[in-house]
């Protein structure tokens, strides 16, 4: 699906200065632990998280994750948002919990990452 579909399914709002609605999204990873995210990398992955610090964007930069959704109405720190804008990472925010947001995307056809070599 496209990031625009993710936005619609999650009733999400754009938080970064640029959001690529046409971005291909093939799988998702939901976690507040960046260590776990690093262990499940996959291409065209969207990250769902409640962690709001700059290390979220650093992790995305390392894994080439181009889209992040902050759940439960949480807002990323100014530093995180700045890093997202600098690195062209699309950032969305939803009021849904991490569990519900993950469930909605899974029902919508997104799969999870696997613990293979990146």
């Amino acid at each position: 699906m496209k990031l625009g579909n993710v936005m619609e399914i999650l009733s999400a709002k754009p938080l970064s200065s640029f959001v690529d609605l046409d971005l291909d999204v093939k799988c998702a990873c939901s976690s507040d632990m960046m260590s776990d995210v690093l262990a499940f990398p996959k291409e065209h992955m969207v990250l769902l998280t409640g962690l709001v610090n700059a290390q979220v964007m650093r992790t995305c930069d390392m894994l080439d994750i181009r889209a992040v959704v902050f759940t439960r109405g949480k807002l990323p720190s100014a530093e995180a948002l700045e890093m997202a804008n600098e690195n062209g990472i699309s950032v969305l925010g939803t009021e849904l919990t991490l569990f519900v947001a993950s469930g909605k995307l899974y029902s919508g056809g997104l799969v999870g990452g696997t613990k293979d070599k990146a």
Binding site: M33, S35, D36, L38, A39, L51, N53, Q55, K115, A118
Partner: peptide, 18 residues
């Protein structure tokens, strides 16, 4: 450290895997 999103105990194994 866990509050920062790290310390899940995956690091060394993930380095070896990659």
């Amino acid at each position: 450290v866990r509050m920062m999103g790290f310390g899940a105990g995956m690091g060394l194994a993930n380095m070896a895997r990659n």
